[in-house]
Structures are given as C-alpha cells and as structure tokens.
C-alpha cells in the first residue's frame, strides 16, 4: 500500500479513538473539551512503559488505557456534578492543567546509553518499540484497525444489552432516568471511565505510531475537534464520530488544495451541519429508520 495512504488511514484510526471518547460523553449529556488530556496520558504512560521500562508493547498500551480510564473515573467523580457549560469548562481546565504538567514533566532514564523519557516541553522521543520489533507501518495500521473494530463491536454489544440506551437516558433527562431506577451518577462516572480508557488506548497507539510526542500536540484544539467529530458525523451510532474523523482528516487534511483553508472549511462545515442536522449526519432518526428497515 502507498505509504502516504497508510499514514492517513492510521491517523484516521488513531483519532477515531479520541472521537469515540468524546462521543460517549456526548451521549451521556456532557460536552468535554478535555479528552485530549487522556490521549496525552495514554501516550505518555504507554511510551514510558515501553521505551523506559522496556515493557512489551501490549502491556504498555493496555497500561495507558487503564490509566486513562482510572483518571477519567477519578475526575468524573467531582466533575459529574457539573452540567452543561460548567462541565465543559471543568474538563477544559483539567486538560490544560495536564498539558502544563507535561510541560514540566521530566522523567529521563539511561536506556542503552541514551537518555530516554519525557523531557518537559521538549517532548518525548524514541518510543521505538514497534520499529525495533520490525513492525512495518502497514501491519501497524492493521493493529490499529483491529483494535478499533474491537471497540466498535464492544459498543455494539453494549447497545444490545441496552447499556447505550440507559446512557442516552442519563444524557437526555437525568431526572426521568433516576425515576426509572437508573443510577445517574454511576453512569456518568462509568461513561467518563470508558471515555478516558478509549482516549488512553488511542494515545498509547498514537505514541508508538509517531515515536515522538510533545505536550503541544494535546492542545484545546485537539479536544474541540474530538467533540466536533461526533457532532458532525452523528450521535446515533458509533460510526458517527468515525465518519467525522473521515471527513476532517480523510477529506480536508488530505486534499492539498484545501489544506491552507482546512480550519475555515471545517468550522463552516460544522456550523452548516449543526444547523441542518442538529444531531449530526448519522443521527438517531436515521439509525432508527435503518434498524426498522433491517428488521422488516
């Protein structure tokens, strides 16, 4: 496969984890502008584990996901008491704090004669496990795609067990949900943990793909994009946020002619879609119609 195509597809796959992370919270009724923080946490944690501690790749990436989920749950415990704008601001503040902390986070150790590990604002390079294991970009793309498909399958299973319906209940009308026996706070914390874990998983995969990460990559713009992906792609299905990533990275970023105007075009697109289809392209109405049609 064309190396450029492999790289674009890998990026689409990696940012899909981040988009799904923000999407889960959107279903639960919260807008988070801070999911990039969990992406960063996953990237740094997995990078440190494989590059500094010499853990195997699988364990390192898993550790990034677990840490993302744990911190997500920990932050949600107080943050879930906020709603709307307050929640958005709280998540944004947390993400900026995380980025500021990474800017001064130095943890370098001697690995085979080289100082390896996060070096504050200078970033964190030599996350080379994948390359040293001789895994080419093509097969690594397959790893990303497989994990993404597994996540989508897991969400499909959750939908079948009506987990997603209950999360949507909490998001739409927490009072009515509580009346029907749904434990709202638990769902909010659970959603935040799942979202943190997904972003952490994506971050770990990203660090091993890029081999170099720095705090500046995890800016607020990244978090805003993550929310926008779900909003334009649609909230009706897990494929929605992935469609959003496809549109942004696959179309806008890759079309050279548009590259200079990418932000403007993307912003305009978000505005237009939100006016025409407030819950995105693949919204609940469309999904319900497809389901009804499929059952016939």
């Amino acid at each position: 496969m064309d190396p450029y195509l492999v790289s674009v597809l890998s990026n689409i796959g990696l940012f899909s984890f981040l988009a799904l992370s923000a999407w889960i919270l959107l279903l639960g009724g919260e807008i988070s502008f801070g999911q990039q923080a969990y992406f960063a946490i996953g990237a740094y944690a997995a990078g440190i584990a494989s590059a500094v501690w010499a853990w195997p790749f699988t364990a390192a990436v898993l550790w990034g996901a677990v840490l993302g989920a744990g911190i997500g749950a920990l932050i949600a415990w107080p943050a879930a008491r906020f709603t709307g704008v307050h929640y958005a601001i709280a998540t944004l503040a947390f993400a900026e704090l995380t980025r500021a902390a990474l800017n001064v986070f130095h943890y370098q150790r001697d690995v085979d004669g080289y100082l390896t590990g996060p070096d504050g604002a200078n970033g964190f390079g030599d996350i080379r496990w994948v390359y040293e294991a001789g895994i080419e970009p093509g097969p690594y793309l397959a790893v990303i795609a497989t994990l993404l498909l597994a996540v989508i399958a897991l969400i499909g299973l959750a939908a079948r067990l009506d987990v997603m319906a209950q999360l949507r209940m909490v998001g739409e009308d927490p009072i009515l949900a509580a009346m029907q026996g749904v434990r709202v706070l638990r769902w909010k914390i659970g959603a935040a943990a799942a979202a943190g874990g997904l972003a952490g998983l994506g971050g770990g995969l990203y660090a091993h793909f890029a081999t170099y990460v720095e705090p500046a990559q995890f800016s607020v713009m990244t978090g805003v994009h993550a929310v926008a992906y779900g909003l334009i792609g649609g909230l009706g299905t897990a494929l929605g946020p992935i469609l959003g990533v496809l549109i942004d990275i696959g179309l806008l970023e890759s079309l050279r002619a548009l590259a200079a105007y990418r932000m403007i075009v993307f912003g305009g697109l978000v505005a237009i879609i939100l006016i025409l289809r407030p819950r995105g392209l693949l919204d609940e109405t469309l999904v319900a119609k497809v389901r009804a049609w499929a059952r016939r």
Binding site: R168, E172, D173, L176, L235, E284, R291
Partner: peptide, 8 residues
C-alpha cells in the same frame, strides 16, 4: 410531556 426523544 417527558420522554426520551432520542430513544425509540
């Protein structure tokens, strides 16, 4: 009226 509008 209170319903979950985005559920079937």
């Amino acid at each position: 009226i209170r319903l979950f509008g985005n559920l079937t």
